[in-house]
């Protein structure tokens, strides 16, 4: 019997505790595959956030550090500066990166910190019960804007990639939408490039993944992917915003 498919080495045996249809587990697996493919498991240190992926240290087989909410880029900076030959990544949600942690992500990008940031944007605080996020779309309902996000009261969703692309520091900034096979392939390629940049000694790389939350969006997994395609993609356009 020939083995044709197996779990990446960088992934532990702990079963994912994510909701059915959530893209967290898909992206975790992609990161693990990339770590395997680049052969960097023994020198990778991951920084996980506060949010649904707070338990990421359970799922990965590389060294992991659990950061305070929003501070993963600062923690990653501390690690990478002390261990320049390591491969350091952060994994952050939109509340973590685009709300409480805006200062840390902006300055890590401006410094061109040689880290890889995987940014999961699903427009909601999934773990705390579906409150409004900095990336919640205008009109989108949440538990703290039950009538839909009103720009007059809550302002506008933040386009992180476009904002960070105004800086000279970053090497690579891209947004991907893994809602179909093409999007999934592009997502994997983007993550791999973000990690390879570090191996090549390049600077700050960020991959924004347009993600879902079937539970808090109150949709089936399939509906949630269509919703991204129809509603999220028009506002958060996929593309490459910096590559140098």
């Amino acid at each position: 019997m020939q083995k044709v498919f197996e779990k990446p080495q960088a992934l532990s045996d702990t079963p994912f505790a994510y909701c059915p249809g959530c893209l967290h587990s898909v992206v975790h697996r992609m990161i693990a595959e990339v770590i395997d493919e680049l052969g960097v498991l023994d020198r990778t240190i991951g920084i996980c956030p506060v949010g649904c992926s707070v338990f990421m240290y359970e799922y990965m087989e590389c060294d992991m550090i659990e950061a305070a909410h929003g501070r993963a880029p600062a923690v990653a900076t501390g690690v990478k500066r002390m261990l320049p030959d390591s491969v350091v990544f952060t994994y952050q949600g939109d509340g973590d990166l685009a709300s409480i942690g805006t200062a840390e992500i902006v300055h890590a990008a401006a410094r061109g910190e040689k880290i890889s940031v995987i940014f999961i944007n699903n427009g909601t605080y999934g773990m705390t019960g579906g409150q409004m996020a900095p990336t919640t779309l205008i009109g989108q309902k949440s538990s703290t804007c039950p009538g839909g996000r009103d720009a007059a009261a809550a302002g506008y969703p933040i386009r992180v990639c476009e904002m960070l692309a105004t800086l000279d520091g970053p090497s690579y900034i891209t947004r991907v939408a893994p809602v179909d096979p093409v999007g999934l392939t592009k997502t994997k390629m983007a993550i791999k490039k973000a990690f390879r940049n570090q191996v090549d000694g390049k600077g700050f790389s960020l991959v924004e993944v347009l993600s879902n939350c079937p539970t808090q969006w109150k949709m089936t997994p399939v509906e949630s992917l269509s919703w991204i395609d129809e509603n999220v993609v028009p506002y958060f356009q996929p593309g490459v915003f910096a590559d140098r």
């Binding site: 240190i45 920084i47 550090i65 950061a67 305070a68 501070r71 600062a74 923690v75 990653a76 900076t77 501390g78 690690v79 500066r81 002390m82 261990l83 200062a103 840390e104 902006v106 300055h107």
Partner: peptide, 26 residues
Amino acid sequence: GVFLQAESEVAAINMVYGAASTGARV
């Protein structure tokens, strides 16, 4: 060694958290 002026005290202590995690005296 490493000297880094952080963007805030909050970032600085979290850099210390990451750097201390590597076992270095920071």
